[in-house]
Nucleic acid binder design. Structure first.
Lengths: 247, 247
DNA sequence: TCTATCTATTTGTATAGACAAAAGCGGATC
DNA sequence: GATCCGCTTTTGTCTATACAAATAGATAGA
């Protein structure tokens, strides 16, 4: 039992995905689809608007709707908290806080983060293990002004990444993935060779244009990779249970 | 000049993003918003449906609409063709085809790709340079059964990645990002040290569950990184000019 | 020839009204 | 208490209609 607009959506989507309608091809005008599907224009419009919203077609007044140039290579990557990721994959996750101290932001780091030097920060270093083997080294800075409750949190039971996501709202995130060679200290902690290629994820999150946290997560290259499947068509169904209101 | 449904959308979005309405919070019922904005229910419905489509709220009949749990850490990563990327950044891009030969798929590679050994493939190796410096080594396999026109294409004027995107439809892609140490051959081509950390992107694309192409793109770690900004709210505006129809 | 204006077409937005589907809730019954 | 039934609320879909905005193409004018 599907609705009409959904059927129109899927019919057109299928023709685009299968290559029957190639990029640039003009999709029937709304009034033509109205005739074809025996429904009102609003219904057709809803279907086409959804396709446009999804980037599959482009619509221009007086001109028509066209199959969009292939959305070349934009992919959605799930970048999860390590503990969440390990759990999902059915692995065992543990972590150790190696360092936790409150200091003030030095000039160099401040510039790097785009913040004022002298701001009070919590600096954390944390070693994650999956199934007993070192899996990632986390170096984190938390701006205490943006997350004051971090001052008294010892992260004994919840790892900092997860804790922050639950406790501190953010509005923008920046991710950078790079490959670096392990320096001596990192190699020792990760139980790998010095110079070994490591996959580093850097994440900086902001709330109203002020940094909330900055973190580097360094994975040994032989034990970790990012992967994502991408179906250009798929809806992002991320049903999240609101069964009980948090009032 | 914004439409009403857009204003409703943005008002609610802003309250969610700022943390005024936390996850689990009940959003006013449609009829309440109708009163507040002095508009019809269809208009309110459009705004709320869009928010739901975007995953920011969850709607349940008879119950209401609720702010969704924070979409923790899903980020959209633009993984573009190298030449496109370079152009966008205003850099100069050139490439050399190092190898181009037609062979049959050996057993090991076939297993890796999930295809039948013995299939005819085009094997390519291509060195990309940006602003005159080696930037990436591309090792590609094209399944000739899925892209027969590749047989006669010499990729002299259009790099293989771009050519494939334009010419060959695909329905699914898989991306893997990993860090590896450069072996001797790779290091020489990329003009870097052996053992240097490299950022490798692997992409495999399928059409109707058969591989179209498989490619490894190896970047020197000191000259490349993946980066993406993520605003949980933002629409994915990928305006692509259809000015001239390709009929 | 070039420019400004008009016109027709297509999409975008909005409305009021209708009914359907889902689901919480209370009451009746066993 | 457990189960079923019907009531009510809220969202989901659809229609018919209307006008606005954009704009390609035609037309008129300089």
């Amino acid at each position: 039992m599907v609705s009409i607009h959904q059927r129109i959506f899927e019919d057109i989507e299928a023709r685009i995905m299968s290559g029957v309608w190639l990029p640039g091809h003009r999709i029937p005008f709304e009034h033509e689809l109205v005739k074809e599907y025996q429904c009102s224009r609003m219904t057709v419009n809803k279907a086409l608007s959804a396709l446009a919203e999804r980037g599959m077609i482009i619509r221009r007044r007086k001109v028509g709707s066209f199959v969009a140039a292939r959305q070349i290579d934009r992919t959605v990557m799930d970048i999860r908290d390590i503990s969440t990721e390990a759990e999902l994959a059915g692995h065992d996750h543990s972590y150790t806080i190696l360092m936790r101290k409150i200091e003030t932001l030095d000039a160099a780091t401040a510039t790097q983060l785009g913040e004022q030097a002298g701001a009070e920060i919590l600096r954390l270093q944390c070693l994650h293990a999956v199934d007993g083997k070192p899996h990632a080294l986390e170096r984190r800075i938390i701006m205490l002004a943006m997350a004051p409750s971090a001052r008294t949190e010892n992260f004994a039971s919840v790892p900092p990444g997860k804790w922050l996501l639950d406790m501190v709202p953010w509005s923008k995130a920046r991710h950078v993935i790079r490959a670096v060679s392990a320096d001596a200290a990192t190699a020792r902690l990760l139980e790998t060779e010095r110079g070994e290629a490591c996959l580093t994820l850097i994440r900086q999150t902001w709330r109203s244009s002020r940094t909330v946290t900055y973190v580097e997560i360094i994975h040994p290259g032989d034990r970790f990779q990012f992967a994502s499947d991408f179906h250009p068509t798929e809806k992002s169904v991320t049903e999240q249970l609101p069964r009980r209101s948090a009032t």
